[in-house]
């Protein structure tokens, strides 16, 4: 895989949100330009409510930006596509479908034959360490397991890119740590270009090849650095502690700015 090949370009992205009742306009994203390279796992960090999720939703094609554009493999993004598969913070698993039904939903939309679909379900459940859970319903699963299914569902459509919107945001601290290690293991296997939105610096430092720190609303890029040291990183690593300190300082300043 050619490194350094740009897969996705965010060009002069600006987004203004208009409240449908009060008609009050809020500027959410302020002229952001970014370029995402093939095969890289990029973490986007920022204070809560800063507009990083909005940016991800625009990249996914769920929202059209006020101005600027997102270009994916040379074509402007105008609508959602399985080429950019999303993993949702609230899992968004279909509760009326079994684990198997959820994982093969995207394949059914492509009219993939049943045999191929079944094979994919088995393959991805095995990757998630969830063999034998095919016929369970989402309500029977723990939060961590739900998000494994969410990840399997996104990977099963064989996307070119994976978008993860605070996927571990609703998990308790312990499960969250486990899921981070799991995601690291799965990504080493699946090797997908990914954008991972989070507000946890530890999570970002643990997983990413590149770290982007966004400001409070209207959001701009504050820090954009490549992490060179080998993954998985330890807290005791030199690069980890250096970057942590720098990012923490910037984010703390942003949070206090948004509180004022």
């Amino acid at each position: 895989m050619a490194q350094g090949n740009s897969v996705l370009e965010v060009k002069n992205l600006t987004h203004v949100y208009t409240d449908s009742r009060s008609h009050v306009e809020t500027e959410v994203i302020d002229n952001v330009s970014l370029s995402f390279q093939e095969g890289k796992f990029v973490c986007v960090l920022g204070p809560s409510g800063c507009g990083k999720t909005t940016m991800l939703n625009i990249i996914a094609g769920f929202i059209r930006p006020t101005s600027g554009s997102v270009v994916f493999e040379g074509k402007e993004v105008k609508s959602p596509s399985p080429e950019r598969a999303m993993v949702f913070q609230d899992y968004a698993l279909f509760p009326w479908l079994t684990v198997s039904g959820n994982i093969q939903f995207g394949l059914m939309m492509k009219n993939t034959p049943a045999k191929v679909r079944e094979a994919k379900v088995t393959e991805y459940l095995e990757m998630m360490g969830m063999k034998g859970f095919e016929h369970k319903y989402p309500f029977e699963l723990s939060g961590g397991m739900k998000q494994r299914v969410g990840l399997a569902r996104a990977l099963a459509v064989e996307p070119k890119m994976l978008l993860l919107d605070e996927p571990f945001g609703s998990l308790d601290a312990q499960t969250r740590r486990t899921m981070q290690r799991e995601l690291f293991r799965i990504m080493a296997q699946a090797k997908k270009t990914s954008i991972f939105v989070t507000h946890s610096i530890d999570e970002a430092l643990f997983l990413s090849d590149r770290l982007i720190v966004m400001s409070a609303r209207p959001t701009r890029v504050l820090i954009d650095i490549e992490l060179k040291s080998a993954k998985p990183r330890q807290r005791s690593d030199k690069e980890y502690s250096e970057v942590y300190e720098k990012v923490d300082k910037v984010i703390t300043a942003e949070v206090s700015k948004s509180i004022e």
Binding site: A60, G61, F62, S79, P80, S81, P82, R84, A85, M86, F88, D90, A92, F94, F105, G106, M109, K110, R153, V157
Partner: peptide
């Protein structure tokens, strides 16, 4: 209907009909 269900549907390649 929870908006994320509908988003997930379109994201996985569902048509309006689906």
């Amino acid at each position: 209907v929870r908006p994320s269900f509908i988003r997930a549907g379109y994201n996985l390649g569902a048509s309006d009909r689906d």
